[in-house]
Simulated assay, not measured.
Amino acid sequence: MDETPLPAITEQFARTIAPESDPVIEEMDAKADLEGFPTVGPAVGGWLRLVARMVDADRVFEFGSGFGYSAYWMAPAVGDDGQLVLTEVDADELDEAREFLDRGGFADRATFEHGDAIETVDRYDGPFDVVLIDNEKHRYVEAFEAVRSKVPVGGAVVADNMIAAGPLEFEDVRALLAGDDVDANETSRGIAAYLDRVGGDPAFETGLLPLGEGVAVSVRVE
């Protein structure tokens, strides 16, 4: 995480107190490292599990699941009768997600949806106790609008990559949120627009978790 504005010591310390991984998670971490695949990492993964436990989550929806890393971390908190909805446009990655969750004993509580997440969520009724937004950064606001009404009071919307994400320029995000007119790229504008949207929504309270690449947590309060 040395290239992000977040201090490395924060990430390292968070990992020491995060829930223990298992052989499947360790394999997923190794795969991500080998392929340069952008997962949330174990510190944020363990924290996602904690969020799911804190809200006593029965149902989770993910906008962008990759090969199932985040879903795997949250799966133990959902319980045998719960539901995790994974969405992914890459069929091969979704197949890998199915295999990993099956090997962990969690496939029975997972639904695997191939296709656009924003189109997929329209087919589902709420409530979703935890929502993870991790799809295309310029579509974060669109994702939030698509799922907002399906999040109950006490539920949480979690969005990754608030501080770092490929071409994202953190200083441009800060400038945009301050109302400055800057020549920002699409990713930076998408993240700034998302933070502005959820931060200004009276039905949600939002804070920033300074782990991984920056995670925004919005809890529905009314």
Rank of each mutant, 00 (worst) to 15 (best):
L84K: 03
A52L: 00
G115T: 06
A77I: 03
G46Q: 08
F67E: 00
A107W: 04
V89K: 09
F61R: 01
E62N: 13
E145L: 12
G41F: 05
F112V: 00
V153F: 11
D56Q: 12
P152E: 11
W47Q: 03
R103D: 13
H138F: 05
S149N: 14
D134W: 15
A43E: 10
I133C: 09
S65N: 03
T39D: 11
V55W: 06
G68A: 07
A43W: 02
F100Y: 15
E88N: 04
G104M: 04
D90G: 00
E119K: 13
F63H: 06
R53I: 07
S65H: 11
D92Y: 12
A110L: 11
H138E: 15
F37Q: 02
R109M: 11
T87A: 02
H114R: 09
D122Q: 13
D81V: 01
R49A: 05
F100A: 15
A143D: 07
R109P: 02
A146F: 07
V44D: 06
L84T: 02
Y72V: 09
V60H: 04
E113S: 07
V153Q: 14
P42S: 14
N135L: 05
G46P: 09
V131E: 01
Q83A: 13
Y140K: 07
D58Y: 08
T39C: 05
I118C: 05
R49K: 15
E136D: 15
D134P: 02
S149K: 11
F128Y: 09
V40D: 06
G105P: 11
V141K: 05
V147Q: 10
E136F: 15
G104F: 02
T39H: 08
L84R: 06
F100P: 00
V51Q: 14
D81H: 08
E99P: 00
E93V: 01
E35G: 00
D102C: 02
A75G: 05
G36V: 12
N135C: 13
G36P: 00
A110T: 14
V51H: 12
S65A: 14
R103T: 04
N135H: 15
G46K: 10
V130C: 13
D116N: 15
E136P: 09
A71W: 03
A117Y: 11
D80N: 10
F63A: 12
W47M: 10
W73D: 03
W73T: 00
F112E: 02
G36K: 15
E96F: 03
H114T: 14
P42I: 14
E145I: 11
A75S: 12
P38W: 12
R98C: 03
Q83S: 07
D56V: 01
F100E: 03
A143K: 03
F112P: 00
Q83N: 05
S65C: 10
P127L: 13
A143I: 09
A91W: 02
D116Q: 05
D108R: 14
G46C: 09
A77G: 12
P38S: 06
A143L: 07
D125T: 13
L50A: 13
W47I: 00
S70D: 09
D95T: 12
R59V: 10
G41V: 08
A57Q: 03
R139Q: 14
S149M: 03
R148E: 15
G45C: 09
G45K: 05
A77W: 01
